[in-house]
């Protein structure tokens, strides 16, 4: 099954349009944050300067970019806040890049897009904490295995998808961005709305991920947590390599 690059681009474009439209039709839309008119105006200015060429001057979508009506502040905050937007050359998937805007600018653009139509909002801080009595990490790790590990690996080391796409590694991603990714489903990631995973569920998942990221490795250096392949290569290259070096010394004649 081969697809031409433009076909992939088209499918992605179509998908983005449809999923964007989907949010608008969805039943559990989070109310947009109340933002000041100034912030929205500032956001619109930034939007026109940086985003409108692809997403249309009113965020209605254009060639090269999907409609942003109803994608919500969370989507803008994730896409721009991780540097994925503004997007560069087309490819199977947008990459994480250095962020190009300040926090204030991102908030302003998020406020503007949120003002277009209701959509998922930037999460409250109470769902982003990783410690506390009400956090159930066991629950979080179980939900992570059921809903996320198949793409992102059991400890968030990332994994491959079809045709050059991939599920990124989750180490180093902020709590807020993980939350926003779950609630908005960027690119090919499915959406985990609040009816599927409640905000508390999401918080538990994030707490588990942060625990895994920050906990000391009990067994020693972790070999990137990618499992038996790394272990096999290690034993062939370093384990057997070192032992062969010993055998050569052992078989060589002394001076």
């Amino acid at each position: 099954m081969r697809r031409r690059p433009w076909a992939i681009g088209f499918v992605i474009f179509l998908g983005l349009v449809l999923s964007g439209g989907g949010y608008a039709a969805a039943t559990n839309v989070v109310q947009a944050e109340v933002s000041s008119a100034d912030q929205v105006a500032e956001g619109r200015k930034l939007f026109l300067a940086n985003c409108a060429s692809c997403h249309g001057s009113n965020g209605e979508g254009a060639i090269g970019g999907p409609s942003l009506i109803g994608v919500g502040a969370a989507s803008v905050d994730f896409q721009v806040g991780t540097g994925r937007m503004p997007g560069q050359a087309s490819g199977p998937q947008l990459y994480k890049k250095p962020v190009q805007f300040t926090e204030e600018q991102i908030s302003a653009m998020a406020a503007y897009v949120a003002s277009l139509a209701p959509g998922p909002a930037i999460p409250d801080a109470e769902y982003l904490k990783t410690t506390g009595d009400d956090i159930d990490m066991t629950h979080g790790s179980e939900l992570f295995r059921i809903n996320c590990a198949m793409c992102h690996n059991a400890v968030g080391a990332g994994g491959a998808l079809t045709q050059g796409k991939f599920a990124p590694a989750l180490g180093g991603v902020t709590e807020k961005h993980i939350y926003e990714a779950m609630v908005t489903g960027p690119q090919n990631m499915p959406v985990f709305n609040d009816a599927n995973l409640t905000p508390e569920d999401k918080r538990d998942i994030i707490a588990y991920l942060k625990y895994v990221e920050e906990a000391d490795s009990v067994g020693g250096y972790e070999l990137a947590s990618i499992g038996p392949v790394a272990e096999g290569l290690f034993v062939w290259i370093f384990g057997l390599g070192f032992i062969i070096a010993i055998t050569v010394w052992l078989g060589a004649k002394a001076n």
């Binding site: 449809l18 999923s19 439209g21 949010y23 039943t27 179980e142 489903g185 009816a195």
Partner: peptide, 23 residues
């Protein structure tokens, strides 16, 4: 019902938004 150790809850059609995936 949702896949969960505690015995998950039933799912309403309206909860399954476009782009969602439920296990």
């Amino acid at each position: 019902v949702r896949d969960s150790a505690e015995g998950g809850t039933a799912i309403k059609a309206s909860e399954v938004t476009i782009g969602s995936v439920f296990h």
